[in-house]
């Protein structure tokens, strides 16, 4: 729901991010209110992923400030209120892991050190698997799932912590249509439960009907913020996506570092 009067959940002011001396985000203001479903759109390299990484604290700010639930990001400790779905091609690592194990790690925001999972933990994990429609695959290895199913596992992992605010970074990239529908159904359930969703997407596909506000990035700035736009309006005309645009010219040497990280 578009919620002009709700409490602000995300407040970003003049957010500027510099990577390797190059400004990638320049002076962006964004306020997301409770219960909103915001699609963050734009071409490859426009800075939409960087903005989400700045909002979650993965990318240090050069200037500006971010408040989550009214608390400055650097003092924000209530991590169980955020669910993050990073941009990843696969949920699998070098060692086999079961779907349930991956989803269970989303519960760590609420678990204390050296404690066995409680009944509430197990219920939340079961519920998360149910929402993404993968309860029947809980004990299968993640690597045996298709790419789209693995994205649903990553969403279930974020869901397991029962957060109020979700950041999803391109969950539908490279996902087939049936799985996009399953993802959209899971996001609809979240949204109906009252969660606030910030979704980074190049294309919305079946999720278009869920979005109640579009934010379009262009070259490091927010170029549009308002009612949902069609993909036509965002991209002009549909064209094959160009390869990844590198924000920083790529010169690699063993001990070189970039201020602000990779």
């Amino acid at each position: 729901m578009l919620n002009a009067l709700g409490a602000p959940v995300v407040e970003a002011q003049a957010v500027t991010v510099t990577i390797g001396g190059r400004p990638v985000l320049r002076g962006n203001d964004l306020t997301v209110r409770e219960g909103e479903f915001v699609a963050l759109m734009g071409a490859n390299g426009s800075g939409k992923s960087t903005l989400v990484r700045a909002l979650t604290g993965l990318r240090p700010l050069t200037q500006g400030s971010v408040h989550l639930f009214g608390t400055p990001l650097e003092d924000f400790r209530d991590r169980s209120r955020i669910g993050f779905v990073p941009q990843r091609a696969t949920a699998a690592g070098g060692v086999p892991a079961s779907v349930r194990e991956v989803v269970a790690s989303g519960r760590l925001t609420r678990r204390r050190l050296l404690r066995l999972p409680s009944r509430a933990d197990r219920t939340a994990i079961d519920d998360a698997l149910e929402v993404v429609g993968l309860a029947h695959r809980a004990h299968d290895g993640v690597s045996t799932l298709s790419g789209g199913q693995q994205q649903r596992v990553l969403i279930a992992r974020a869901l397991a912590g029962q957060p109020d605010l979700f950041f999803l970074d391109e969950p539908t990239a490279g996902v087939d249509l049936p799985n996009q529908h399953a993802l959209a159904a899971a996001l609809r359930t979240l949204s109906e439960r009252g969660a606030t969703v910030v979704l980074v997407a190049h294309e919305l596909g079946p999720m278009a009907s869920l979005v109640d506000r579009s934010v379009v990035m262009r070259d490091g700035r927010i170029a549009y913020d308002g009612p949902p736009l069609s993909e036509q309006a965002v991209h002009g005309h549909h064209h094959p996506a160009p390869g990844r645009h590198d924000h920083v010219p790529h010169v690699g040497s063993p001990f070189d570092t970039l201020e602000g990280g990779r």
Partner: peptide
Amino acid sequence: SDPEFAQVA
């Protein structure tokens, strides 16, 4: 398995 997720968590 996912350092970025872990950091946000």
